[in-house]
Simulated scan of single mutants.
Amino acid sequence: MEKLIVGQSLEKQLQEVICNVAPTGAISYVVTRLSDGEEPQIVAAFKETMIHVGASMVKTLILEYVFHLAYEGQLDLHDTIALSRSPRVAGAGVLQELMGTHSFTYLELCRLMMVISDNWATNLLIQALGMEYINARAHQLGLEHFEINRFMMDTLAVQEGRDNYITALDMAKLLHHIYNLRYTLEGHEMWSILGRQQFRDILPFHWGEDVVFHHKTGSLENVEHDAGILETMNGDFCFVMLMSHVRNDVAKQLGAQVGLRMKAFVEDALP
């Protein structure tokens, strides 16, 4: 991707904030300018290829793969999956409050997985799709370090060294792919789902509730991530912020400050 020289001033701003708030954390970010049918331009980036634990950010790839299969005629979004097909898990979401006799469509599970980050919905989809096939789709999309190696809330897998991984650059590529599909039959619903994300306590925290951000967040102990696309009068931009080895309350504070500066820069400082 081409990198804009003007973005160096944003990088300087963000570096000052990172050094002040979380100087010892593992921080990655990337800001890209998007245009339909064209290669994105990098506005600013820092350690964009550093590998992070994925947390709930990997759910975005599962979403894309479901809709890819539906578009290819290999899956019907209105077919159902019974809750009993996968063990109940805790964490984010509402399905854990239901009895296992319910069934949900692929579309409903995607919405629950993304909008409220439901972990049980995610595991049902991973089991139905196959972990190896989801990872093959990541490779097909050119996501070099994007891996799903465990189910949500699988602490035993983590203890055994199996985890899910992402980079800021891979997240930007995946979001750009969905962005290019937003006016198509395959992509319109994905785009709409991303725009209904209910967790707004990282990058868009200071933007106001009326600002639509098509994004996904992810959180684990000492991990906070956020990545999405903002449409502005000055163009459309992808913001990705990955924060590891930072206390969660500090990471959210940092993400909110970074989000404020990213938005102000792309709206006011870019030509």
Score class of each variant (00 low, 15 high):
residue 171 M to T: 05
residue 197 Q to S: 10
residue 161 G to I: 10
residue 200 R to P: 04
residue 164 N to H: 00
residue 162 R to G: 05
residue 153 M to T: 09
residue 151 F to A: 04
residue 203 L to F: 05
residue 169 L to D: 05
residue 194 L to D: 05
residue 176 H to K: 15
residue 197 Q to N: 13
residue 205 F to I: 02
residue 165 Y to F: 15
residue 191 W to T: 11
residue 205 F to N: 01
residue 149 N to M: 00
residue 175 L to S: 03
residue 167 T to C: 03
residue 190 M to A: 08
residue 146 F to H: 01
residue 190 M to E: 07
residue 190 M to H: 03
residue 151 F to V: 02
residue 168 A to Y: 03
residue 198 Q to T: 15
residue 159 Q to M: 13
residue 180 N to Y: 11
residue 204 P to H: 08
residue 160 E to W: 10
residue 190 M to C: 10
residue 189 E to Y: 05
residue 156 L to K: 10
residue 182 R to A: 12
residue 162 R to M: 13
residue 176 H to C: 15
residue 148 I to E: 00
residue 198 Q to A: 14
residue 206 H to I: 12
residue 174 L to E: 01
residue 150 R to E: 01
residue 205 F to E: 03
residue 206 H to P: 12
residue 204 P to Q: 10
residue 197 Q to I: 07
residue 187 G to M: 08
residue 147 E to R: 09
residue 192 S to D: 14
residue 182 R to K: 14
residue 145 H to T: 13
residue 202 I to M: 04
residue 205 F to P: 00
residue 183 Y to I: 05
residue 187 G to T: 12
residue 180 N to F: 12
residue 201 D to N: 10
residue 145 H to A: 15
residue 158 V to G: 04
residue 161 G to L: 11
residue 201 D to W: 04
residue 145 H to W: 13
residue 193 I to Y: 03
residue 199 F to N: 07
residue 178 I to D: 06
residue 193 I to A: 02
residue 155 T to W: 06
residue 147 E to Q: 11
residue 147 E to N: 06
residue 191 W to N: 09
residue 180 N to E: 15
residue 177 H to G: 04
residue 157 A to M: 11
residue 190 M to I: 06
residue 162 R to H: 13
residue 154 D to M: 07
residue 195 G to E: 11
residue 202 I to P: 01
residue 151 F to E: 01
residue 193 I to N: 02
residue 194 L to K: 06
residue 191 W to Y: 14
residue 155 T to V: 11
residue 150 R to K: 09
residue 149 N to F: 00
residue 151 F to C: 07
residue 154 D to F: 03
residue 191 W to G: 14
residue 203 L to H: 05
residue 172 A to Q: 12
residue 165 Y to N: 05
residue 167 T to D: 02
residue 170 D to G: 07
residue 162 R to P: 06
residue 146 F to C: 01
residue 148 I to L: 01
residue 197 Q to P: 06
residue 155 T to E: 12
residue 148 I to A: 00
residue 150 R to I: 01
residue 169 L to Q: 07
residue 177 H to D: 11
residue 159 Q to E: 14
residue 161 G to Q: 11
residue 177 H to P: 04
